[in-house]
Design a protein around this nucleic acid. Sequence first.
DNA 1: AAAATAGTGTCTATGAGACACTATAGT
DNA 2: ACTATAGTGTCTCATAGACACTATTTT
Lengths: 250, 250
Amino acid sequence: MAAKRTKRNQDEHRFLEQYDADAFERLSVSVDVSLLTQVGGELRVFLVRRDEHPFRGQWSLPGGFVGVDESLEAAARRVLRDKAALEGVFLEQLFTFGQPDRDPRTRVLTVAYYALVDWSRLAELPTGSDAALATLHVPFAGETGGPVDVTVDGEPLLVAFDHADIVGMAIKRLRGKLDYAPIGFQLLPERFTLLQLQQLHETVLGQQLNKDSFRRRMLQSGMLEATGEREKAVGHRPAELYRFVHRSAI
Amino acid sequence: MAAKRTKRNQDEHRFLEQYDADAFERLSVSVDVSLLTQVGGELRVFLVRRDEHPFRGQWSLPGGFVGVDESLEAAARRVLRDKAALEGVFLEQLFTFGQPDRDPRTRVLTVAYYALVDWSRLAELPTGSDAALATLHVPFAGETGGPVDVTVDGEPLLVAFDHADIVGMAIKRLRGKLDYAPIGFQLLPERFTLLQLQQLHETVLGQQLNKDSFRRRMLQSGMLEATGEREKAVGHRPAELYRFVHRSAI
DNA sequence: AAAATAGTGTCTATGAGACACTATAGT
DNA sequence: ACTATAGTGTCTCATAGACACTATTTT
């Protein structure tokens, strides 16, 4: 029995040594990251201007090809580091887009990720001719999934490839997870008021929420922890600052 | 202005003609399908026995490499047709698994799909030495996401690659979508009783459900349509048969 | 004092769970 | 008649929304 197993392993070892990786055609694989943030009641996405063909001059999600020995998430984090100078942010796989004609160069399959950050971590990024924090205009309040309109100061941007679809799916995912996953706090500073949290939810969901029940739901969820501190210099009674608590059990 | 745009297009055209697809390393890309079904209060997955290295003799999800001009979903449907003789079934992208060492041959990234079918469409499949409908033993009732135990007649099967993880994620996705998406009926025959539907939900979720509120929820959801027919020869009052109605709105 | 938002207490409407009861098939 | 499940009606409890009211800060 032991001998048999050993023989098998030798078989497999020999097979692997002789394996021809080109036995099947290989594809170019990239990652593209929808880096989302929120400010002033608007959702924004970080875009870079393409300075090379194809779609030269148009705007696209930050992305890059996946290295042969690089995991998908590592590739996405590398892209965030190189193009947006960000590390340690929330990042999750979104969907893999693989229509054969989605890239005019050659077959390029892209594994889309989405990332969430507080506005303060993006505000200092140099934007202008080569990068932009574009405002998202999402079709309608409920579901989306389709492409999204993208503007800067009200002017529409041309979005390259199928990246407008990718951003649309990112918004849809964010909306879907907001209510049952501790995901919203990724878009807020470390300490925040309940009103800020509610306004964030309203921005993401695209609809007004009831103040009373929102408060109750959030405080009962056990995800929030009062800090004892209060906001300052606000021209009215200051609200308590809360912090998200990462619970081990559910 | 028109001239400028034309020049641009010529530029881009020339660029594309000269593009070297090997400028970046390419990867092998496969699809793997978790084909799930349900019978007798158990969830089952369709597995095939590998007759080639690596993992020869072990069991894996039906899968295949993606052709250069083939969309991902087309590849998944091809796999279902070739390995399970199925067409026109529910199929949805699940997740892309891309750990560099997940395949001992070479870097193989796999786009996982999951498919759902009524048991009657799988019962006639020849299983035995080369294919099996394995019973799934899911860790615990709530969430999963980790690997899943797979048995046939109580005997555990060796599952190749990271396919046990893939099946685990498929179950998790199915559980998550069951309550808010018209997805459960994919696992039932065309006409079914409310009790059958409830037992399906109990099987998938791994927990008992309240009969009264389950009835109410389902009937109020607008997803069900009474057929006027009743089940026959059941040794007790026969239940009405329902059909799922595909709504355009919502 | 006025303005503005924070935060509390309570009433009401809605949906889930529990339970009792009636209905209808096969045996 | 007996058994087993289908299906209905009603009560209770938990939660969301609505609304009134009090609290606390800056100007």
